[in-house]
């Protein structure tokens, strides 16, 4: 595989994305509002007491971390992939002497840089105003980082195979909307997973969505025992393997079906 070409593409995408940064800042602002709403809602609900063992400043700490993690793991590129397939822009990708997956990966990494340039100062400012409480030791941070990396890979690749369904159905992006809703409900956005009603909590633990956002945050805020952390990593890795396999299969099947549209 031509990795040098891939890196050149990544750099080029990043520079061209930076040109349109105000547009992407706008998108990033939109994505941070729902977690912010639930930060305030739970903060008000907790008041001076605590809910499920979490006090108001702890909710603030949880949700400010969530804004960062949500932004880091969100793959906007999967939304445009469907358009690329439908419009025939994919033809140009396929003709290049490097893997077409690099196009998606480069947009993904470029996006991360641009979004972080917006979201880091904003969360920093919010942290100064809202005074969160976050007591994460070195052990939590050490476990948090790999969980975060796996969460991004899982969310990205899971969305990737859904987006690749555009080879078969023109409206496949409805599935990405569904994924967003499930992440909202089951991945710790509407409430930290330990606070969900029992039935929803069980579903959340076995489905992949919690491992895209909520799991690393629960590690960082120290809400999980060692057994639960180990179990979580196992489920996360299993879903990641499944996502990789599905993405491979769907790509292989789709590219065979693909009959270039447009020029």
């Amino acid at each position: 595989m031509n990795h040098r070409g891939g890196w050149a593409l990544i750099k080029r995408s990043w520079l061209s994305w930076m040109q349109y940064r105000s547009f992407f800042f706008l998108l990033a602002f939109g994505w941070m509002v729902p977690p912010l709403v639930y930060l305030f809602v739970w903060h008000s609900a907790a008041g001076e007491a605590s809910i499920g063992g979490m006090t108001a400043p702890q909710f603030t700490g949880y949700y400010l971390t969530l804004i960062l993690v949500n932004q880091l793991t969100y793959s906007q590129t999967n939304w445009t992939l469907g358009d690329v397939i439908r419009s025939g822009e994919l033809n140009a990708w396929l003709l290049r002497p490097l893997s077409p997956h690099y196009n998606v990966l480069s947009a993904e990494l470029a996006g991360k840089v641009v979004y972080l340039a917006f979201i880091l100062p904003i969360t920093g400012l919010l942290a100064l105003v809202l005074r969160p409480e976050l007591n994460a030791g070195p052990r939590e941070i050490l476990l948090f980082l790999p969980a975060l990396l796996l969460a991004w890979l899982l969310r990205f690749i899971w969305g990737y195979w859904l987006a690749l369904l555009a080879f078969w159905a023109t409206r496949a992006d409805a599935l990405l909307t569904l994924q967003d809703s499930l992440v909202f409900l089951l991945a710790g956005v509407v409430a930290p997973v330990p606070l969900l009603p029992a039935a929803m909590q069980t579903v959340a633990i076995y489905l992949p969505f919690r491992y895209m956002v909520g799991f690393p945050i629960e590690i960082l805020t120290g809400q999980l025992t060692a057994t639960h952390v180990a179990q979580g990593f196992a489920i996360q890795a299993a879903w990641l393997a499944a996502a990789l396999l599905l993405a491979r299969l769907v790509w292989a099947g789709g590219i065979k079906r693909y009959s270039a549209i447009g020029g």
Partner: peptide, 11 residues
């Protein structure tokens, strides 16, 4: 709806 049910399941 589910968001409200989750919230008012706790308070």
């Amino acid at each position: 709806l589910l968001a409200l049910l989750v919230l008012f399941g706790q308070v």
